[in-house]
Simulated assay, not measured.
Amino acid sequence: MIIRDEQPGDEDAIHQLTERAFAPMAFADGTEASLIGELRASGDLTLSLVVEIDGRIVGHVAFSPASINGVHGDWYGLGPVSVEPDMQRNGIGRALISCGLDCLRSAGAAGCALIGNPKVYGPMGFASDGAISYRDLEARIVQRIVFVGEAPAGELLFAPALEAS
Score class of each variant (00 low, 15 high):
Arg94Gln: 14
Gly43Val: 06
Glu19Phe: 00
Leu39His: 06
Asp10Lys: 03
Glu11Lys: 06
Leu47Phe: 10
Gly111Glu: 10
Glu38Pro: 00
Val148Gln: 10
Ala164Lys: 13
Ile36Ala: 03
Leu17Glu: 03
Gly149Thr: 12
Asp102Ala: 11
Asn117Ser: 07
Met1Gln: 01
His15Trp: 08
Ala95Trp: 07
Met124Gly: 10
Asp74Lys: 08
Leu49Cys: 06
Glu155Arg: 14
Ser82Thr: 03
Leu47Tyr: 12
Glu84Lys: 07
Arg135Pro: 02
Ile14Trp: 11
His72Thr: 14
Arg4Thr: 01
Thr46Glu: 02
Arg40Thr: 04
Ser106Arg: 14
Ala41Thr: 11
Ala139Arg: 04
Glu11Thr: 10
His15Lys: 07
Asp10Phe: 02
Ala107Tyr: 09
Leu39Met: 05
Leu137Met: 12
Asp54Phe: 11
Asp10His: 07
Ala110Asn: 14
Ser34Glu: 12
Ala127Leu: 14
Met25Asp: 15
Gly116Asp: 08
Asp129Asn: 12
Leu156Ala: 11
Ala159His: 07
His60Cys: 01
Cys103Pro: 00
Ala127Gln: 13
Gly125Lys: 14
Gly108Gln: 01
Ser67Ile: 12
Gln16Asp: 15
Ala95Pro: 05
Gly108Val: 08
Ala110Arg: 13
Ala164Leu: 10
Ile57Asp: 12
Asp129Ser: 04
Val142Phe: 03
Glu138Arg: 15
Gly91Leu: 04
Ala139Gly: 05
Glu138His: 13
Gly77Arg: 06
Arg135His: 13
His60Met: 03
Ser128Met: 02
Ile145Ser: 13
Phe22Lys: 10
Tyr134Glu: 01
Asp44His: 11
Gly91Met: 08
Ala95Gly: 13
Gly77Val: 01
Pro85Gln: 15
Ser34Tyr: 02
Ser67Met: 14
Val51Ala: 11
Leu78Trp: 07
Ala113Thr: 15
Asp102Cys: 02
Ala23Gly: 09
Glu155Ser: 10
His15Gly: 00
Pro8Ile: 05
Arg20Met: 02
Ala164Asn: 09
Leu35Phe: 05
Leu47Pro: 02
Gly9Gln: 01
Val81Gly: 04
Asp12Cys: 09
Arg89Gly: 00
Ala62Gln: 10
Leu47Ile: 11
Asp12Lys: 15
Pro152Thr: 12
Leu137Ser: 11
Ala151Leu: 01
Ala33Gln: 04
